[in-house]
């Protein structure tokens, strides 16, 4: 599978303080790379730079082999999704999903067909006419996914998209995302601070800490790395289990 995203020696400073240092990353087509990182590690800044919403001080970004350093966000075909669903409050669920298609000036029949199909895939057809304030957190997030996926972006950037959801909804959304990613053949960077979520969601895993990124060759390499946190997590549950006996 060919590489869709490649980042070479990327660096970012806020004033004199380095936020990202010598970031190198490669993502293959139709794969999901989970990026683990704690608050303030620079993961949101990295996503914003990839989306074109912020600029790097050094290094280069390539999308499908093309340098996109100077490309405007609207020309990159990369959608950045926030932790909050951020639906357009003046548009109903249908119109929120249709937003990107309308910008591309697609025909009315094509828009109706694509949006209805997307609503069906998201199991949200009966909520099409509802306004964002009439939807639950999970439903809003579904519509937000639909809005991003319906325009078939080259790359999807997800910044802790399930962070604000309760545990049950979060699990449902993880399953839904995995299904949709497979169905739509998505390539995505999935940022989370949750170890389990990173393992569940990503076909590859990376870790960003104090502005430095480590991309593991495979999940096995990640599990075996003593600094990945997996071993400590397993030890914790083993301890709980042994105490229960």
């Amino acid at each position: 599978m060919s590489t869709i995203l490649e980042i070479k020696n990327l660096g970012k400073k806020f004033g004199k303080e380095p936020i990202l240092r010598d970031i190198n990353l490669a993502l293959k087509k139709q794969e999901v790379l989970s990026l683990l990182g704690s608050s303030g590690s620079g993961k949101t800044t990295l996503l914003k730079i990839i989306a074109g919403l912020d600029t790097q001080n050094e290094g280069h970004i390539f999308l499908n082999g093309k340098n996109i350093d100077n490309e405007k966000p609207q020309k990159r075909n990369i959608v950045y999704l926030y932790q909050e669903a951020l639906l357009f409050p003046h548009l109903n669920a249908f119109e929120n999903i249709a937003f990107g298609l309308r910008l591309k000036k697609e025909t009315i029949s094509a828009i109706r067909e694509k949006v209805n199909k997307m609503l069906e895939n998201l199991d949200m057809s009966k909520h099409a006419k509802k306004m964002p304030n009439q939807l639950s957190g999970g439903q809003r997030q579904r519509i937000s996914f639909g809005r991003a996926m319906v325009i078939k972006p080259e790359l999807l950037l997800l910044d802790e998209p399930f962070g604000a959801l309760d545990a049950i909804t979060r699990t449902k959304m993880q399953e839904l995302f995995k299904q949709m990613a497979e169905l739509m053949q998505l390539s995505a960077l999935f940022v989370t601070h949750d170890l389990k979520e990173a393992i569940v969601m990503g076909s590859q895993i990376g870790k960003i800490q104090k502005g430095k990124l480590v991309q593991y060759k495979s999940k096995r390499h990640f599990f075996e790395d003593e600094f990945s946190g997996v071993k400590q997590e397993m030890d914790f549950w083993a301890q709980i289990h042994s105490n229960d006996r």
Partner: peptide
């Protein structure tokens, strides 16, 4: 953030302002 989202969804500055 909503404005930035509109940009990444393909909206130009003018479209983002208008819609």
């Amino acid at each position: 953030s909503i404005e930035e989202l509109s940009l990444t969804l393909g909206g130009s500055r003018w479209q983002t302002f208008k819609y």
